[in-house]
Amino acid sequence: MKQTLDEYLAAREALFRNPSDEGARAWWMSEGYAPPTHPDVPLETVHKARLQWLDATDDMLAESRAFLYDHGYEAVPNIRAYTSKTRDAARAKLGLAPLKDRE
């Protein structure tokens, strides 16, 4: 079955808003990735991606950073992880309202 862009984005947003091990594994398999080398890889991938999502609230960013730190990531290399300040600056460039203090 061919997935539309809107369906893909809605599914990704739902996973980013409520990341779970089960949801991350289902997404991993639906994308056709090879079996992960470690069971935590799908959920870690979701948390890394969520750190770059413009709609991630401050609480979501903190939750993802804490999850990754708890799973052995001292820093997240090679990605531009947003802070509330950099996320809102990127949102402003696109004409979007800031999320800071709007939780």
Rank of each mutant, 00 (worst) to 15 (best):
K85W: 08
L5G: 04
L54Y: 06
L54A: 10
S84N: 06
K85P: 03
T83H: 05
E63N: 14
K48W: 07
Q52K: 05
K100N: 14
A97G: 10
L15S: 01
K2T: 09
T37Y: 03
P19D: 06
T57S: 15
T4F: 05
L99V: 12
E22N: 09
Y33I: 00
Y73P: 03
L43Y: 02
L5P: 04
P35G: 01
R17F: 14
G95Q: 07
L51Q: 08
L51N: 01
A34I: 06
Y69R: 11
D55Q: 13
L9M: 14
P77A: 10
L15E: 00
S64Y: 07
A24M: 03
Y82I: 08
A14R: 12
A11H: 02
P36A: 12
T86M: 06
V41R: 11
F67E: 09
L51F: 02
G72V: 04
R25T: 01
R87Y: 13
T37F: 05
D88I: 07
D58V: 13
D40M: 11
H71C: 05
A24D: 00
L54S: 11
D70C: 05
A66L: 11
M29T: 13
L68C: 08
F16E: 06
P36F: 04
P98M: 07
P98I: 12
A92R: 14
E31K: 07
R17S: 09
G72Y: 06
P98T: 13
A56D: 02
K85G: 08
A56G: 10
R102P: 05
A24E: 00
K85Q: 15
S64E: 11
Q3V: 11
K85E: 15
D21R: 15
D55K: 13
T83K: 12
D21P: 05
E22C: 00
R12K: 13
K48P: 03
S84A: 13
N78C: 06
W27C: 01
E31Y: 00
T37G: 12
E44R: 10
A75N: 10
A10E: 08
A66M: 10
W27G: 00
L61D: 08
G32P: 04
E31W: 00
L61G: 09
A10V: 02
Y33T: 01
Q52M: 12
T4R: 01
A97Y: 12
E31I: 00
H47L: 05
A26D: 04
A14G: 04
E44K: 11
K100I: 14
P35S: 07
